[in-house]
């Protein structure tokens, strides 16, 4: 009988990991698509992303439900406890990533109503880095690969650097032609969202580290401190 319990428990942990993988897949797709939508000015794709976000939210509640049930009924400890805790935390980050992608999609809809701005190359580059970070960190979670997680954690500054240079570029653009201020501001927040997606990737990387080694990451992550953007009220409210 006890053997049965053990087996069922590991199956439940598996189900939790499967759920995270599925959420990760959804979030990854949302990020890749949202970048494509801005760059290609694809209204249909943007609408699709917005619709699909509800699914990520549902999955997150499902992960939460499973995690709570596991904690309440099984009292997991040590590695098992870490597995439940990290799944829970990661699902939160993935849900936020989904929101940020959705926010990019919404801004795409607005941007598509004004003339194109020849500055999306920088957005595309940033987006590619963020998508790659997300892919790497999700792979590192799936494989329990601390090394890969560390590389994600270290490379976040790349996105930050891109963000800062894009910010300056957009500012010059706005000053040269005041009519572009509104679309440029939207692009700025798109860039900001991508940067925050990168931040969530590093959070997940920290979780992977904790999951595998049992220790929190201690070192201070090197990052560009002078963040020039104002807080975006709409994305903070999870538009």
């Amino acid at each position: 009988m006890p053997e049965h319990t053990v087996k069922a428990f590991s199956e439940e942990l598996d189900a939790l990991a499967n759920e995270i993988a599925r959420m990760g897949g959804l979030a990854e797709q949302a990020v890749i698509d949202s970048i494509a939508a801005v760059v290609r000015r694809d209204t249909r794709l943007a609408n699709e992303i917005i619709e699909r976000d509800a699914q990520i939210d549902r999955e997150q509640r499902e992960v939460e439900r499973r995690a709570i049930k596991l904690m309440a009924l099984r009292h997991p400890f040590a590695a098992d406890l870490r597995q439940v805790l990290t799944a829970w935390r990661i699902s939160g980050d993935l849900e936020r990533i989904g929101d940020l992608a959705k926010n990019i999609a919404k801004r795409t809809l607005v941007l598509n109503q004004s003339d194109p701005i020849q500055i999306t190359k920088g957005i595309e580059r940033m987006g590619k880095i963020a998508a790659f970070q997300l892919k790497t960190v999700l792979d590192s979670y799936a494989r329990g690969d601390v090394q890969a997680a560390l590389s994600v954690w270290m490379h976040d500054e790349d996105i930050d650097a891109h963000y800062n240079s894009l910010f300056r570029e957009l500012l010059t653009y706005m000053m040269e032609d005041p009519r572009t201020i509104s679309p440029c501001a939207h692009l700025l927040f798109v860039a900001k969202n991508i940067e925050r997606i990168g931040d969530h990737c590093t959070n997940i990387a920290e979780m992977v580290h904790y999951l595998v080694t049992g220790e929190e990451m201690s070192a201070e992550r090197p990052r560009a401190k002078d963040d020039p953007t104002p807080v975006d009220p709409s994305s903070a409210a999870g538009v």
Partner: peptide, 13 residues
């Protein structure tokens, strides 16, 4: 290995 650890693309899962 769990399949979802290899491929997590939602349609295939």
């Amino acid at each position: 290995v769990r399949f979802s650890a290899v491929l997590r693309h939602p349609p295939i899962l």
